[in-house]
Amino acid sequence: MLVIDKFSRKPIYEQIIEGIEREILTGILAEREQLPSIRELSLKLSINPNTIQKAFIELDRAGVIVTSQGRGCFVAADARMRIREKFIPKIAEIAALAAELAGAGVDEDAVLDAVREAYANHERKETKL
């Protein structure tokens, strides 16, 4: 279930986009599955339907969801791949963080270990599912 923090500095429609992407990545929403309607989400989350519409348009444009006139919105068949593509630029953040850690004199192996451990943990979770 999406959780929206209305008092966050982050715009609500960005929170909706991230929330839906997270649900797709974790498998709560399966590929090709139908998304709840704008009306349903609006009432459940108490959020302006125009805001939800905007998030859906954005997701549609990124190819994460597919809008079918009159039938509603569906998770795209290749949604996970699309979301993955969006995450690739985040590698730059690791680079920036690594530069900071290097500046502070943190051992390179410790940093690499942390990255490997995060990946290993994630895979363990995946296989459990």
């Binding site: 609006s42 108490s46 125009n50």
Partner: peptide
């Protein structure tokens, strides 16, 4: 307030 908002939201949708 929340109740009123919900009624307005549903009117916007419908």
């Amino acid at each position: 307030r929340n109740l009123v908002k919900q009624v307005i939201y549903s009117d916007v949708c419908e």
